[in-house]
Every structure is written in structure tokens, then in C-alpha cells.
Simulated scan of single mutants.
Amino acid sequence: MKVAFIGTGSMGSLLIEAFLRSGALYPHNLYLSNRSKDKSELLASRYPGIHVSTSNANAAQGSDIVFICVKPHHFPEVIAEIRSVLLESQLVISITSPVLISMLEEQIPSKIAKIIPSIVHSVHSGTSLCIYGKRVQPEDRLLLEQLMSSISRPIPMKESETRIASDISSCGPAFVSFIVQQWVRAAVQLTGINMTDALILSAEMLLGTGRLLTEGGLTPEELQRRVAVPGGVTAEGLAILEERLQGVFPSLIEATQRKHKADQVKLASLFNNDVSAAGSTATPANGDSETET
């Protein structure tokens, strides 16, 4: 199976290395292209057998699966370059949420899916969000979900739920790590506990909490009841959180939804106005994959 990755920046490289470490793909399966060829060549030096393509079109041509791992505003340029080599039998995968499946189905003949990954796939954890276009067949879904299950738990989603699901699965590690960062800093400042010890304690706590909410079958409410004895220390802390966090998460969701909608409007304009112009240029558009999820 030939698998192309257009864009080998942060998320593209993460996915490539996760798939290789899991054994789901082998270096000789992979054809890479990137605006900065050095990034693809670095991966090829780490994993002998990887093919570094001279252009996006060369990487995509003949591939069974084409992952497009570039910033949203690079999509029209990339699509313009690879459109002529794509076939109806190929699977083209977007890993960025603002790019609608309908946008891509209007531009290329291939079967389109959207898979939103997470940084935690680098440790073969977390969920991958799987959204399928109308041309994707059951056997295609099975192939993609088997591939993603090697590094994550694939979860089929409606495209309308992509943004909020991405907030939790993909943005969530950054949001939760920010909370941990603030908590640990306060602990160090107010009590003198060692920063390293506090980080280890919090990381192990997060790992165990996740397992209780999955393998342990507890709901968040049940977990709180199990830990918080009435009148105890945990109950005091929960009261502070309940008081101070009112409105924080609705505001967070409103902000990410607002940015998502603005990105979609901008992308629609780019696809409508720039695809033809981008298709006429001879300059490869190998966007790096610092992908916004």
C-alpha cells in the first residue's frame, strides 16, 4: 500500500513516526513531500526506505491514501497541484477541521475523509476523529479505522460536531496542560514543593484519572463522589473550582467556535477565488504541516 504525506511538519511528522513505530506502515510504503525538503529528508534518514518526492503531485500520484497535513490556507494551492493526478479510487485525507469535505469533493474526484488527530497519538493514545465523505465506501472506512487504531481509538463523527470534538480531543491536551501548569506553579510558590516532583505527581494523576474514566467505567460525578468526603479537603477544593470556573468553559467553546467559523469563511473565499490561479502556477505548494485542528 502506497501512502503519501503532503506536509511533514509538526503533525505530519508525528503521524508518520507513530505509524512506523506501531508497525502499521513500513518506510517503503511512504512517499513524502514538503515545502522544506530538509524535513522530509530528515525523516528518510531516520527511517531508511522512505521515499522523498520532488513535488506534491509526485507524492500523490498512484498513492492509495493521501494525507494532506498542511495549514488550512495552503489547501487550495495543494489541491490545485495534485488535482490532475488524483483518481476516483484514491482516498484523500484532510487532518484539519476548517476544511469541509464538500469543499474538497467539489475540487477532486477522489474519496474524501477528514481525520482529526491528536498529539497524544505519539504515545499511541487518545482518539482520532473520523469524518467521511459521501464517496467513501464501507471497506474504505474499515481500512482507515484499522490504520488509525494502531495509534489511537478512532471515533466516527458528524462533520457538524468536528469543532467541539476537536476542542476536547486535539486542543484538550494543551488546555489541560495549561491548567496543570498553573496549578503546579501555585503549589511551588505557596508551599515550596519541588517543581519536578509536582509535575510528576500531576502527570501520574492525569494518567490514572483517564484510566478510571475509561477502563474503570466511572463517570466524572462518580469519581468526585468517591474522592470528596463531605466536609473534607477535596470538598473544599471542589467548592472553589465550582465558584471560580463558572463561565470559563462556555467562553472557551464560544471562542473556538467563532475562530472555526471565521476560518471556514476565509477558506471558502480562497477556494472560490484562488484555486484556478494556483493551478496555473509552476511553483510547488508543499505547505508545512503546522496544522491547526
Rank of each mutant, 00 (worst) to 15 (best):
S22Y: 00
G23W: 09
L25P: 00
P27A: 00
H28M: 13
H28P: 04
L30R: 06
Y31F: 15
L32G: 03
L32M: 11
S33H: 11
S40Q: 12
S40C: 14
E41N: 07
L42H: 15
L42E: 15
L43I: 03
S45F: 05
S45K: 14
S45Q: 15
Y47C: 05
P48T: 05
G49C: 05
G49I: 09
G49A: 10
I50L: 15
H51M: 04
H51R: 12
S55T: 11
A57T: 01
N58W: 06
A59V: 13
A59N: 10
A59L: 02
A60V: 03
G62Y: 07
C69K: 09
V70I: 12
V70R: 08
P72F: 11
P72Q: 11
H74K: 13
F75A: 05
F75D: 08
P76Y: 03
E81R: 08
S84L: 04
L86S: 02
S89W: 08
Q90I: 03
L91F: 01
L91G: 11
V92E: 13
V92P: 12
I93D: 06
T96K: 01
S97L: 09
L100W: 03
I101H: 01
S102F: 02
M103E: 13
L104G: 02
E105Y: 00
Q107G: 02
I108F: 04
K111C: 11
I112C: 04
S118R: 08
S118W: 02
H121N: 13
H124K: 10
S125N: 12
S125Y: 03
S128D: 14
L129E: 01
I131F: 13
Y132D: 10
Y132W: 15
G133F: 04
G133R: 10
K134W: 01
R135E: 09
